[in-house]
Structures are given as C-alpha cells and as structure tokens.
Simulated assay, not measured.
Amino acid sequence: MKIINKPLLTLAVLVLSNAAIAQSQDTSATTKLVDYAADKFPVARNFNIEFNGSGAYNFTSKLRGVDLPSGKTTRWLQTKVSTNINLIQSKSWILGTTFTYRGTSFAAKLDAPVAGLDNWVDDRFHYHASSLNLTHISKLFGKTAIFSGSLIVDGSEKRFERVKGLFTVNVVLKANAHTRIAIGAFGMLDPSSDLPALPTFTYEHHFDNGLIADITFPRNIFIRKNVFGNGRITLGTEIDRTGFYLYNQDNSGKTYEYRQVDLNNGLIYEHKVFKNFIITAKGGIKMTTAARVFDRKESFGDFIYESKPDPTPYFNIGVSFNPFGKKKQ
C-alpha cells in the first residue's frame, strides 16, 4: 500500500500548488509552490509524525470467493512518519526526495473457527516508501502548468518490494484572490494499480464570511475556516490508504500485499505554534470502501481475500515541523 497514498498525495500537492504561483511577484514560483504545499498537507512539510487509531468494529470477509464467519477488529493503531527535502531548487525546477514510514498494529478475530486458517491475528506490520521527485513549472496553452515525475521504491522491514513511477501534469485555469481552479491528470507505472491514469480537478473559493471551499478530486472535499489567529478548522471527508506486505501466509512462499482504502469523515483542527510547528487533531467516522489481500505480482482487483468493515470512530494526532516556515499573520 502506498503510505498515505504517496502518488495521490503528491498529485494533490502539485495541483493545489499551482494557484500559489500567481500570488507573489517578488518570490520565485518554486518557492511559492513549496510554501503552499506545506500549508495544505502535513506530509509535504520537512518532517511530520502522526498517531492514529479507530474503535473496535465488526467485519465480514471472503477468501477466494467463499464467505468466512463474521469477525471483529479489536485494535487498529498506526504511527506515520514522513520527511520531505528539496535537494535542488531553481526558478522553475525542484529536485527533491521523500521518505515515508507507517507502522500498523492490528488485532482481529473470526467469530467461528475455519479449518486451515488462523482465526486470530495480532501483529505489527511495517511499510516504507522512498521517492526521488522532479518538478518543472512551465506554460501550456498560455496557462501556468506543472509537470512532475517521481521514482518510488517501497517495501517492508524485510526487503524492498516494488519500483513504481508517477507522472503528473496540472494546468491552472483561474487564480485570483478569491477563486482557484486547476485541472490535470496523473499516470502510474505500477502493475498493482487498477487505475493507471486518472483526471484531477481542484476548486478553491474564499467566501466573504471567511469560509473556504477546498475540493481536490479525488482526494478530499473540505470546508475550512481560519480561527484563533494561528488556527484552522476543517469539516469534510478525505481519502486515506493503508497497506503492508505479508509473507508466508499460506506456506506457499509467496509475498502478498494488504491494501485498505478509507474515507475519513469529520473535523480537523490545526494550530501553528511559534513559527515552525503545527499541531493537528482529527476525529470523526471512518468508512472503509475496500480492504483486500492480493499477490504482490498481481493487481488490487485480482484479490484472494476481501473484507468489508463496519463504519467506526477514528482519531488522529500529529505534529509537523518546517524550519523554513513563516509565522502566520
């Protein structure tokens, strides 16, 4: 699984960052892009750490198309860590690197025994991904455009597993003091992906009452409002993804991948402390749209196991650090 869906997050950062280019004439476009991305997304900052979890929940599941007894997840806790460093930055180019880690502590059991299966799982799984990212700011059909490519390597605590590629292009259609609109697309070079290409759309509008509509398809739908001088509260929904590699699950020697796609619905509060730290708290209801296990050599759609969890409350607490941050006015 792509930690915090790295390719999708990279895409969202680049799309939203387009609008920032037109905001200042005394700073380079790449500097504004980096600042805007860091304001929008914690993992785009130089360092970010998060702790999150959910309440106990029931689930139904199938193994190779056969229904299994219902079950219950009693523990779901995660630690997420990411670093984001720009190595070279000019007026129109950025060369950077990103490292992400996610540790998942998971416990679940089936309500009835099944011959040949472990009916109880209690373990901790590790996932990491590193990427080299190249971004270029240019013009396309007379509009500001951002072209980006990433080379991504992921794996577990045992070994590296996949090498993937991500390519994006995003074009700013409108960018003024109130409204920002951008369209684009991204493509993935990843045999495990069911959607190798996808269009994107970004809409951001600042209303006179202080509310901000912030829509990034397919990542999030938000309504934001700045509060308390250095705070920001957000209501809406966003996609989060979890995954890790599994070994020797059926004594076949094969490597499998578990991948879960969640919709996190609820409230987010962010508060800037001093000029370099941002504390974030999230809470609400998590709805899992897909949770599957598939052979590492196959795709997400060619799965051997599928689970359908019930909605459950979730929480998230995080701290971000950006040594180049500016104190919010």
Rank of each mutant, 00 (worst) to 15 (best):
D262E: 14
L235Q: 01
Y247K: 05
V227W: 08
Y245G: 00
F244P: 00
R232S: 07
I221D: 02
V227T: 14
I223T: 13
R224T: 05
V227E: 12
N251S: 11
Y256W: 14
T237V: 15
V227K: 10
G231W: 04
V261Y: 04
Y256V: 01
T237I: 14
L235R: 04
F222N: 13
E238Q: 13
I221P: 01
E257L: 08
D262S: 12
G236F: 03
E238N: 06
Y258K: 10
Y247H: 15
L235K: 05
R259I: 00
F244H: 09
T242R: 04
T234R: 12
D240W: 07
F244T: 01
D262M: 01
N230P: 04
Y245A: 00
Y258T: 10
K225A: 06
N251Y: 06
Q249R: 13
E238T: 13
L263H: 08
Q260N: 15
N251F: 08
D240H: 12
I223V: 15
R224W: 06
D262C: 08
Q249K: 10
I221R: 07
F228I: 04
R224D: 13
G236C: 05
L235T: 06
I221F: 14
N226Y: 12
R241F: 00
R259T: 04
T255K: 10
F228A: 13
E238R: 11
T237H: 05
G231A: 04
G236E: 05
V227H: 07
Y256K: 05
D240C: 00
I221H: 01
E257N: 12
N220C: 08
G236A: 08
N220D: 11
S252W: 07
Y258G: 03
N220A: 10
I233F: 01
L263P: 00
I239T: 11
F228W: 14
G253M: 09
G231E: 04
I221Y: 12
I239M: 12
F222R: 10
G243I: 03
T234Y: 10
N220I: 02
R232G: 03
I239K: 09
L263I: 04
S252N: 09
L263M: 13
E257G: 05
V261A: 02
R259S: 11
G236R: 03
L263E: 03
I223Y: 06
F244S: 02
D250C: 02
I223G: 12
F244N: 03
